[in-house]
Simulated scan of single mutants.
Amino acid sequence: MKKWSMIIGFCLLLTAAGCSKDMANRDVYEESGDTINVNNKREELYNEGGSRGVRNVSDDYGFVRHQKSPIQNDRGGTEHYSAIDREQVANIISQLSTDVPNVNDVATLVTDQEVLIAYSSDTKNRNQTADQVKRTAMSVVPRFYHVYVSDDKNLMRDVENLANLDSTSRNARNSVNQLITLMKKSPQGNRMSDSEDENGATANDTINRTKR
């Protein structure tokens, strides 16, 4: 009996060690990959550690840049979590957009009412690709959001720079509007519906945005 107890105890010890090693490897894997987060504040984003570092994440713009993996359907070890803040929404949109054919690099900014997506692409049908990227974003965000896209890769840096602005400042809103104007020079895809334009905005939405 004593011999069997020692064998069982040894097996349990090996199992515990194996689990610890697996969890350590999983942490390393999930923190690597090909996603580039500008606001890399994991504790605050996911509210780890209880009340430590609590902030109102809804006041911040969310930005994520994601590059296509050479391995098909590879997410770089990340998962699609429920959207709990803007940066997480940007992360999901950027990941899904790299699944669109001919889209290789995506920079996504999520504000309180818009999604701005700049991407590099080698597509031969710019409008079709723009429509696919836009509708991908539309499937993630609430329906009142407007989505603007651009295949001008030079605008990717402009999208990234907006992530560093204070989203509550008037200068931030003006900068967003200016970038939207530049992005709309690129194909925006097809109209979302009879009452909504290519970006999901109605006539009233457009009037309200110009008044802000």
Rank of each mutant, 00 (worst) to 15 (best):
C19V: 15
T136G: 03
M192A: 13
I36T: 13
Q95Y: 07
G200Y: 01
H80D: 12
F10C: 15
G76W: 00
N104K: 09
V38T: 11
T98G: 00
I93T: 08
A203W: 07
L109C: 05
G53S: 03
Q72F: 15
G49M: 07
F63G: 11
E44W: 05
E87G: 06
A90G: 01
D85Y: 08
D34H: 13
H66L: 10
N25L: 13
V54K: 15
R126H: 06
Q188P: 01
S58H: 12
T98P: 00
T181K: 13
S20P: 00
N174L: 06
M156N: 07
V140Q: 11
V100E: 00
I180K: 11
V38G: 03
G189Q: 02
R157N: 10
Y145G: 05
H66F: 13
G9T: 14
D152T: 08
K21R: 14
I117C: 07
V149N: 02
D112S: 09
R42C: 07
G9W: 04
D122W: 09
I117Q: 04
A90E: 00
T35A: 15
N208W: 05
F63N: 06
D205T: 04
V57S: 14
D158A: 10
E44L: 10
N25C: 09
K2G: 10
V159R: 05
N56I: 05
K185H: 04
P142I: 11
D27G: 02
Y61T: 03
N125Q: 06
A90T: 01
E114A: 04
S51F: 07
V57F: 10
E196T: 07
T136P: 00
T111W: 00
K2S: 13
K2C: 08
D131S: 12
D158Y: 03
R65W: 04
K134A: 11
V159E: 02
D99I: 03
K211Q: 09
Y81N: 15
D60R: 10
T78M: 13
Q178T: 08
K124R: 09
Q95P: 00
E30D: 06
A163S: 15
P142F: 09
V64A: 09
N73C: 09
Q67Y: 08
Y61W: 05
L155R: 02
E48K: 14
D85A: 09
N56Y: 02
Y145N: 08
N171L: 11
N154G: 12
S94I: 04
L155Q: 03
E114D: 10
I7S: 04
D74L: 05
D59W: 12
R170E: 11
A130R: 00
E30Y: 09
R42K: 12
K68C: 03
Q178E: 07
T210A: 12
A16F: 05
E87R: 11
D197Q: 11
D112N: 12
